[in-house]
Amino acid sequence: MAQSQSAANFNIRWKMRWIWIDKFVEFESGRRAVAIKNVTLAEEHLHDHFPGFPVMPESLMIEAMAQTAGILVGEVKKFQEKVILAKIKKAVFFDYVKPGDTIKLDAKIESISPEAASTSGKITRADKLIAEIDLMFSHIDRNLAGKEFPEENFVFGSDTSVFESLLRDVASVAGAEVAGSEQD
């Protein structure tokens, strides 16, 4: 399989990596994961969101939670399933997140089946609750009435450097090496 992967394909996937968490600090396989993100004024979008009042967009907090929870869900099947965010069940925000803040994203698996998973999550800064975000993920090869998707796993692809970096402090996670070795 590795041979069929064109350089262009690789480039596209690499460019599309769009990570909104900095690292995992806790990881209990199949149950719970905690990641942190440091917000900085060096993120260009904060200059426009909003001029003179930089705050992290709530949509990106949802994305960051989706990445935290999505990696937690993906690790259950050793990153062999294509795990796609399918539904935002709940997203409630209680405070702004500003440059200089470190936020903690705490995700829990509520239910998981061969087809899907549901997660609950909280974002906090120090002890202050910033957001509650509950999500649903679909294992798309097992859904959508048998539609076929590319065999290549475009969610957890063969490039593992990003995962290795995110999971560096929770090295016991099997996925850190599995994501790469089994893929192609």
């Binding site: 399918a86 539904k87 069940k89 509520e110 239910s111 089946s113 087809e115 899907a116 549901s118 649903m136 679909s138 859904n143 959508l144 009435a145």
Partner: peptide, 14 residues
């Protein structure tokens, strides 16, 4: 929608 059915199943189970 289809994903809602899975959501409903999970919730009913709980």
């Amino acid at each position: 929608e289809s994903i809602d059915f899975l959501d409903i199943v999970f919730r009913l189970e709980k």
